[in-house]
Design a protein around this nucleic acid. Structure first.
Lengths: 230, 230
DNA sequence: ATGATGTAGATTGTCTACAATCACCGAGGG
DNA sequence: CCCTCGGTGATTGTAGACAATCTACATCAT
């Protein structure tokens, strides 16, 4: 059954669905997910489900141990630190690459994504705000057209989105502030590479501080959380 | 049959075998590879074979189009350029991260890998020389302990290894020169971050020049090479 | 009581058969 | 001569059943 979906392989679509389910909080970080359960959940067989899970594993959202089980990624404070330092490195690199090639298309796309972020914030939709913020930052990576850079960003983006979403749900903390990206957008459209690079460093530093305060409080349960059997 | 291998899933082992087969030249860049053919080649079923191929796809060595086929990655000059600029960015970043934490273990490992490279060069073993050179560069990434950085390096490494191996086979060009990494190792163990960063830029620039000269001569057949059916 | 040990359940890994999709090629009509 | 259209083969996608392995719990001996 379920043979009416077209133009894309089932595994890929399942990957998107599963990713959305994880990011929406249906499965929490550290929670175990089984192939069979997900297969019946989405009404498909284990084959495509496995394919989708493999995709999310490579993206970093799922972690599996052979013959034992699969669970949703649970980040440590060290992981968060690694992610943010990588973000600084890659985003500066990306802006260096495209700086001289910024055209009208780039400018309009950036302002559009910024507007989408503001709209999501105004609507009070946290999940959409997170998505919009990451889309905004993603533009420079996409503009580069460097496939390796883009896949690196995908891994970073997935981990950040997972963590933020869980963070917000668990603690009721609001999403990004309305003015949080004004400087970022302004300088990205401006004329000074160095000021943009400084802004990236500042931006990430603020984000890291905001993030680290929480993760350290729930540390120490990365490997041994097995409650909630059913 | 073939049920006596232990401690690691078949798909992972098959991935290593297939990677080795590709890098050894059994399958050339742009050549089509089919699941069934590889499955009988390695004496397993399509399931594990698929798993292994999926792994190599994420690594970047294989490219697949749904319902149609899978072929070995064929790099364009733009890809090579992207790879080398990423290498500069990431390797400088990696050295910045570990610079103050370089300990005795790092120093001995670096000299050991350099010695291994020299031995491979002296033996005239091109494949092993390439592997040793990439292992040498890989140490700094491994020392960082940053999982995202490491996976980015894996993608770069796989693509470079594939390209160099095919390059050398097709044109009989020798591997890395014996003295090519003397400065790199010396400065990596030295005291000046800035000189090391300059060395990385120079090192990559030389590598890119050596590489680009060839790839541009065979451009223009990325999408349409379908000969050699059997 | 404590430790080792065997046993049961669950989960992933693997295999075989079948279906959906696509590229190629040749025939027929314009 | 060129374009359209259908057939044919190949390749990947999907399904369900079976085997290998791991974790946890109960049992038994010390």
């Amino acid at each position: 059954m379920t043979g009416m979906i077209k133009r894309e392989t089932m595994g890929a679509q399942l990957g998107s669905l599963l990713r959305a389910a994880i990011l929406s909080g249906e499965f929490q970080p550290g929670e175990a997910v089984t192939e069979t359960a997900l297969a019946v959940r989405f009404g498909v067989s284990r084959g495509p489900m496995r394919e989708a899970m493999r995709h999310l594993m490579d993206e970093g959202l799922l972690v599996t141990v052979p013959y034992t089980g699969t669970r949703v990624l649970q980040l440590t404070s060290a992981d968060i630190d690694d992610i943010y330092s990588m973000r600084i490195c890659l985003e500066i690199f990306a802006f260096e690459q495209i700086w001289e090639r910024r055209d009208e298309a780039f400018r309009t796309a950036l302002t559009q994504r910024h507007a989408a972020l503001l709209e999501a914030i105004d609507d009070g939709d946290d999940i959409r705000s997170i998505d919009a913020e990451l889309d905004l930052h993603g533009l420079v990576y996409e503009t580069c057209g460097n496939s390796i850079l883009l896949s690196s960003w995908s891994g970073i983006r997935a981990r950040l989105q997972l963590y933020w979403a869980a963070h917000h749900r668990a603690h009721g903390i609001t999403g990004p502030k309305r003015e949080s990206h004004d400087d970022y957008v302004r300088l990205a459209l401006g004329d000074s590479r160095e000021r943009m690079k400084d802004e990236i460093r500042d931006h990430m530093s603020r984000g890291l501080d905001k993030t680290m305060a929480f993760v350290s409080s729930v540390e120490g349960q990365k490997a041994g959380s097995n409650r909630r059997k059913k």
